[in-house]
């Protein structure tokens, strides 16, 4: 069976329909499947529910699908600075369901693992818990949250083989591996496509079973949202997030 497709458009052919739920990997603009997002824009499907930690920025990442008004609802933890998002939200054209980031990640992990619901302390006593089941275990109260399964997951990886085994790079990993498990169909774009055996099996993060289609994007677009640097003469650098130069 061939999992490798020639381009992002053909990798999504036959998978897209109006009103579907799509999970999109990435944190901010880091590790986002932007070529697949562009192909969804070109396909023109509408009324999408998109599960993604963030909503891109204007004209970048998921901001592309907001600009083209293809998104009906976002399920996210933080939507940051996106003017298109704000305007559409204030005009009542876009729904948003905020999830605590860990709850979002766990809902995705649970969905992929066949777990329909789980209990977490996160959000207990806040408006996030309103209308949800609360149970006490060992004297602590927990909120029930549901697993999520998407019709389609689109993810970005650094390297993949034709079997769909994937490796990520640095913090571009983020939501991509759990989302790979939680899509009824998962399409991965990879910066480097190699033969089976070229990746050390000990280093594979996402096993190919979770990936139905794969596309090589040699032209992957990578953005930096907050470019922060330090001066060379400044020393010694403190560990941690550092002093802004």
């Amino acid at each position: 069976m061939n999992k490798v497709y020639a381009d992002a458009r053909s990798a999504l052919a036959g998978l897209l329909k109006d009103g579907m739920i799509i999970m999109a990997g990435g944190f901010g603009l880091c590790g986002i499947p932007e070529q697949l997002i562009l192909a969804i824009r070109d396909a023109g499907v509408k009324n999408l529910t998109v599960v993604s930690n963030n909503a891109g920025v204007d004209g970048k990442g998921l901001g592309i699908l907001l600009d083209s008004r293809q998104v009906k609802k976002m399920i996210s933890s933080y939507v940051g600075e996106n003017k298109t998002f704000v305007n559409q939200f204030l005009a009542g054209e876009l729904e948003i369901e905020f999830n605590p980031q860990g709850t979002l990640a766990e809902r995705i992990r649970a969905g992929g693992a066949g777990i329909p619901a789980f209990f977490t302390k996160t959000g207990f006593g806040t408006q996030i818990a309103e209308g949800k089941d609360v149970r006490e275990f060992d004297g602590v109260r927990y909120v029930m949250e549901r697993g999520i399964v998407a019709d389609l997951s689109i993810i970005h990886a650094y390297m993949g083989d034709s079997e769909g085994n994937l490796v990520y790079r640095k913090t571009a990993r983020n939501f991509n591996p759990p989302m790979a498990t939680a899509g009824k169909v998962t399409v991965a774009e990879v910066e480097h496509l190699v033969k089976p055996g070229d990746i050390n099996p000990d280093h594979i993060i996402t096993p190919g079973i979770y990936v139905q289609r794969i596309v090589h994007v040699s032209n992957a677009i990578k953005h930096i949202e907050q470019r922060t640097v330090r001066k060379r003469e400044k020393s010694p650098a403190a560990i941690g997030t550092g002093v802004q130069a």
Partner: peptide, 20 residues
Amino acid sequence: GPFPFEGEEDSDLINAGKQT
């Protein structure tokens, strides 16, 4: 780790504030 030296920023390496 600390912020990178100018010219050594890596788009795949950010903190939770989306800073390099």
